[in-house]
């Protein structure tokens, strides 16, 4: 769970915090206050996302996802993979083993690539958070474009890898 990068992030944060404290106590206190405010500000949305992901992954387990995508091929397979990828939000350490299982269970590169790309770039569940910072129009635009470009990415990958 604690990857090496998270540890680096912690070392960086703590190091800079100490440095900041030595330079200016008042400013450091303010920084921590701002950090907490920024966190508390978005906490309701974060908590909601966590529950939605929980319910979704309980219904759409990795086994079921791989069954649905693995059996479908062609354009229909790509569309299904992209829709599942857009809605769900799966952490990388679950997503990639799942994607590699997809390939092994018979899904093509196109379906797998579109699944991975939409999974990363399109976030329907996280839209409320995004809207809070970017507004509705920019959020919908970004997600729609990411959805469309996921197909472009997949098709190019299909050509490159074959």
């Amino acid at each position: 769970m604690f990857s090496i990068f998270t540890i680096i992030l912690y070392i960086l944060a703590v190091g800079l915090l100490i440095f900041s404290f030595l330079k200016d106590r008042k400013k450091t206190k303010m920084a921590l206050k701002k950090a907490w405010k920024a966190f508390e500000n978005i906490l309701p949305q974060f908590l909601s996302i966590l529950i939605i992901i929980g319910i979704m992954l309980a219904v759409l387990s990795p086994e079921i996802i791989s069954k649905i995508i693995g059996q479908q091929s062609g354009w229909i397979g790509m569309v299904i993979a992209s829709i599942i990828g857009s809605i769900t939000l799966i952490p990388g350490f679950v997503a990639f083993p799942l994607a590699s299982a997809l390939l092994k269970s018979g899904a093509g590169i196109l379906q797998t690539a579109v699944f991975v790309s939409t999974l990363m770039m399109v976030g329907i569940v996280t839209m409320p958070v995004e809207i809070k910072y970017f507004g509705k129009k920019a959020t919908i635009l970004r997600n729609t474009l990411a959805f469309i470009f996921s197909f472009v990415i997949a098709i190019v990958m299909g050509v490159v890898i074959k």
Binding site: M1, F2, T6, L9, Y10, L12, A13, V14, L16, L17, S20, K27, T28, M30, A31, L32, K33, K34, A35, W36, A38, F39, F46, L50, I51, I53, G54, L57, A58, P91
Partner: peptide
């Protein structure tokens, strides 16, 4: 799943938000 994800979130978020606060100040 929610519990596991919450733990994961709580493990990565503190340094991100601390850095964010420091950057702001």
């Amino acid at each position: 799943i929610t519990w596991r994800n919450t733990l994961e979130m709580l493990s990565v978020l503190p340094p991100i938000f601390i850095l964010l606060g420091l950057l702001d100040v």
